[in-house]
Amino acid sequence: MPDIFTLPDSNKTNSSPPDSPKDHPKTPSSGKTGLFNAFSFMPQNMHFDTQEPGETILLLLRRHWITNISWLFTGFLLLIIPIFIFPLFDIASLFPAFFPSSFTSFLILTWYILTASFLLTEYLIWYFNVAIVTQERIIDIDFAILYKSISETRISRVEDVTSHTGGFIRSFFDFGDVFVQTAANFENFEFLAVPHPQQVVKIINQLMGKVEEG
């Protein structure tokens, strides 16, 4: 595997980027940052809040798309339920006479809007739960609608990186957990259900090696 980064040289300007993604043809999703991308190597057109000048993002990780199947399936059921249920009953006849005739259409509209709301919320939680690996740091962003936590550590503080992949589904789709252990006083990082965990470990190990050499 070719070098994935070079330590910033104080004699050079920061304008020289590390190897282009084209140098890594075996790396999946090189440079892509789509709406449904879970593994992006050297993502282009991406920045984060605390990014330092010249700091290159090497990995953008999210949970594997297969982990979204449960809420996608639930959303699909919620979408099709009215199509099968409503023709079976005369919904309007279920309500007392003083209910307005538009109440049924209001119910159907509310049902679909709440379903869309459920799907969007689940998607946003998946989309904003990211792990970012740069030349110098590891950043873990945990997000729920009313909660967010952003942790980061320097690569130099990382002591050990391990990946766990177990079970048929995880082996078949090649995803698993990556655990980044840092020095005693610093927080440990968990990237859960990320695609290609061995590759993530390999990249972080290579970064650690470069930092030690530097």
Partner: peptide, 29 residues
């Protein structure tokens, strides 16, 4: 409204080229 605000804040924390699409979705919501 909270979802829209949080999406806007998170899109500034992690800026990706598709962030605007996500913000648009939350605005439509």
């Amino acid at each position: 409204f909270i979802v829209m605000r949080q999406t806007s804040i998170m899109s500034k924390i992690v800026e990706i080229d598709v962030s605007q699409t996500v913000q648009l979705l939350s605005l439509i919501h």
